[in-house]
Amino acid sequence: MKERRIRILVAKPGLDGHDRGALVLARAFRDAGMEVIYSGLLPSPEQVAKMAIEEDVDVVALSLLNGAHMTAFPKVKRLLEKMGGKDIVVVGGGIIPEEDKKKLLKMGITGLFGPGSSLEEIIEHIKERVRKERWKE
């Protein structure tokens, strides 16, 4: 059976208009063969979770550069679980201090890519996580 293409939501929650990274990633994911949905700017965590469920995505990729990752990322994750999206892979990126990374990893939010991460590394991480998630099923 042919495997379904990875559907990914690229989302930028919070008061932060700096979308360069998110738009670059969206293009890179598309060129890597994924189906990409972009949240647009300033969605609330609720809107991100709702969009993820409605669009039936495999992955939510969160990008935040304003330092609010410790509130926004866990909130999206919790909402997804509550709305029946426990199997949706959540990855994140931004300027995230080491101590915060540990806490986020514990919640199952992985990747946590910082400035200068390569596109290839990010894409590989996502593919790997989706493979594992699908294998569980």
Binding site: R20, L23, V24, R27, A28, L119
Partner: peptide, 8 residues
């Protein structure tokens, strides 16, 4: 955005 992607 296209130029940003080109640079990346």
């Amino acid at each position: 955005a296209e130029n940003a992607y080109r640079l990346s």
